[in-house]
């Protein structure tokens, strides 16, 4: 095992285990940074082109990729497939089943379930993407620098991430979001970044430490390369793989977490349109109007599934050990 687990062997989650093996595999193989594969030696593909080669033959990758593309498009432009207004509701149609022009029926407030389901994609996808990007950037910067420079900065950072790991994320979410009034995409994403970064930081730290000890980095150092050059040119391309893997899988869990927090009434709040809110409102009506639960819950599940499938495919591609 690489040094990620030197102090607390218990701190490995499945995600980090996968990433650890990915880190080992990345560092152990004869890896050249992306784009340097010479044409006359076609067999020695870089990690990235090898991963791409592997991905491009996977149906799972195309299915999840197309689904995510579709979700992103309707998140940006929901009007493209839903002409109605998600907040235009008619109480007289409360809980009515499907009619022509309203294929999914109506919810308790008499809002069109189809329109609300389509518009709900925006909240979920944006919370997922903002949180993941934030967590990945903050986590890999802090963790990567800690791994590279070591010393007191590393010690302080490791203890801080231990503290954040001591709070289960759902529990922290309920406490934090209930006192920070807001209930917007920004506050929910900010919270996820606040509690999520240590996960990536720990992986980035381990990956950088593994990469740092490799011969090619030592050689670059011996040749007088500056810290910046070593980090950007030699370490970053080789430490990136496990971070990408964990971040992709985390995206799905952040979307699921947002819905759970909204369901509990502390995440997004009406008039925001979110699957979590709609599911929460439908849940006590499940006996009278199951269609109210079915559509937003189905959309949420398919979205999370798409991101987890993509994460799985990316992990398999970047981690040759699992093949």
């Amino acid at each position: 095992m690489p040094e990620t687990t030197e102090t607390t062997p218990a701190a490995t989650t499945p995600a980090t285990t996968a990433a650890d093996t990915a880190a080992t595999a990345t560092a152990a193989g004869p890896v050249t940074p992306a784009g340097t594969a010479t044409p006359e030696r076609e067999k020695a593909r870089s990690l990235w082109s090898d991963a791409w080669h592997d991905l491009s033959r996977k149906p799972m990758f195309y299915v999840s990729g197309l689904l995510i593309l579709f979700l992103v498009v309707i998140a940006i432009w929901p009007g493209a497939i839903a002409s109605g207004n998600p907040l235009a509701c008619d109480l007289s149609k409360s809980q009515m089943g499907p009619t022509s022009g309203h294929p999914f029926g109506f919810d308790t407030q008499g809002c069109d379930v189809y329109t609300r389901t389509v518009y709900g994609a925006r909240a979920s996808v944006s919370v997922g993407i903002f949180s993941t990007v934030g967590v990945a950037v903050l986590g890999s910067l802090l963790g990567g620098l800690a791994g590279f420079f070591g010393g007191w900065w590393d010690a302080v950072l490791s203890r801080i991430s231990d503290i954040f790991f001591g709070i289960p994320i759902l529990l922290g979410g309920v406490v934090f979001l209930s006192v920070v009034k807001g209930g917007t995409v920004t506050t929910v994403s900010a919270f996820m970044i606040l509690l999520g970064w240590p996960q990536i930081a720990r992986i980035a730290r381990g990956a950088v430490i593994t990469a740092k000890q490799q011969d090619y980095v030592q050689a670059a150092k011996a040749l007088g390369a500056s810290n910046t050059r070593m980090l950007l040119r030699h370490i970053a391309p080789n430490a990136l793989a496990p971070i990408i893997v964990v971040a992709t899988i985390a995206l799905g869990t952040y979307i699921s977490l947002e819905a759970t927090l909204s369901f509990l009434g502390v995440g997004l709040k009406p008039p925001a349109v979110s699957w979590g809110i709609d599911i929460s409102q439908a849940s006590d009506q499940i006996r009278n109007a199951p269609h109210m639960l079915l559509w937003p819950a189905g959309a949420l599940s398919i979205t999370v599934l798409a991101f987890i499938m993509l994460g799985d495919a990316v992990r398999d591609a970047l981690d040759p050990k699992l093949r």
């Binding site: 799905g252 819905a259 369901f263 929460s280 849940s283 599940s301 599934l305 987890i308």
Partner: peptide, 18 residues
């Protein structure tokens, strides 16, 4: 397992309860 991870707990909960 993929399906179980993708469907949020509260949906599984209400569906099974129902």
């Amino acid at each position: 397992t993929l399906l179980v991870v993708a469907v949020p707990t509260f949906v599984t909960g209400y569906v099974l309860q129902y």
